[in-house]
Nucleic acid binder design. Structure first.
Lengths: 147, 147
DNA sequence: CCCATGTGCTTGCATTTGCAAACGTAAGCG
DNA sequence: CGCTTACGTTTGCAAATGCAAGCACATGGG
């Protein structure tokens, strides 16, 4: 019982994250469960932090959500959360599974996304209809302060 | 029993790998088990492919072996082994300078680029005026041959 | 109203994971 | 020889994982 409680606390971030992704994808719990080839009661328990899924199940859920498995591994604490934009830039530049033109395109899109976020932070207006943008801002402010 | 057999076949690569690493580190099974804070009988079973350890246990074993957890995740089939693919995907997933939706979008574009390259390789036409595309093809053919 | 369909959750259970106690064997020492 | 220590393995079991059957509720249509 106590363990169950602890487990809920430890993994609730993951469950919330999966729930958020599912909402964004406008999928019902049963739809995602089917897409992920996971039982819907179990998915429900995972989202509510009552169960801690294995990496295999995480992989399947990620597939159903059409996001990378690594994203969920990070949320679950299986993979380390490496910060910094140079990591993405370096990785893309070094990637040989896509052409140079594609690499350039990806880097440009990435930079545009970052600029978009910077502009939103600079404005700091009440324009934000997106709670997630607000959360991102506060996180960036925190990390900036630590640097 | 039949399942155990299958499990042995599926995970024997991981077990052998752990055993090899342990031998190289000149540690006994009990020493590694202690360093990894894992029971030695269980570690024995893992090495012989009788059990499939969770990501958490893998992380602990990696710690005991003083190797990266990702190395064992790859061996266990939790993480993809394609170097470039893995690095970019992981980096994007972990990046906090862009929003979740932007991360998803980037990952989708990245995947689409890769699929595009796969399709180009499948066609294998002489249309390639790009030397780099040719290099990509030969690399992919090599990796395909090793599989 | 009733019925059908969809939603997320509860519950019992089979299987798997990881551990503790114990085992059999080998090596070194008095 | 017996004893101690170390080695890797066997075995039984508690807890956790993941599933199937079922539940309660909401919504829409005839």
């Amino acid at each position: 019982m106590g363990n169950t409680g602890d487990m809920g606390i430890d993994v609730s971030g993951l469950g919330d994250f999966i729930r958020d992704q599912r909402d964004q994808a406008q999928m019902s719990l049963r739809q995602l469960a089917k897409a992920a080839d996971v039982s819907n009661p179990y998915l429900s328990q995972v989202e509510r932090g009552l169960r801690k899924p294995s990496a295999e199940i995480l992989g399947r859920i990620a597939q159903g959500l059409r996001i990378s498995a690594e994203t969920l591994y990070v949320q679950a604490g299986i993979l380390a959360q490496r910060a910094g934009d140079d990591t993405v830039t370096t990785a893309i530049a070094a990637d040989r599974t896509i052409t140079e033109r594609q690499r350039t395109t990806l880097l440009q899109i990435y930079a545009a996304f970052q600029a978009e976020n910077q502009a939103t932070a600079a404005n700091h207006s009440s324009e934000s209809s997106d709670d997630e943008t607000l959360n991102e801002q506060s996180k960036m402010e925190v990390s900036h302060g630590s640097e």
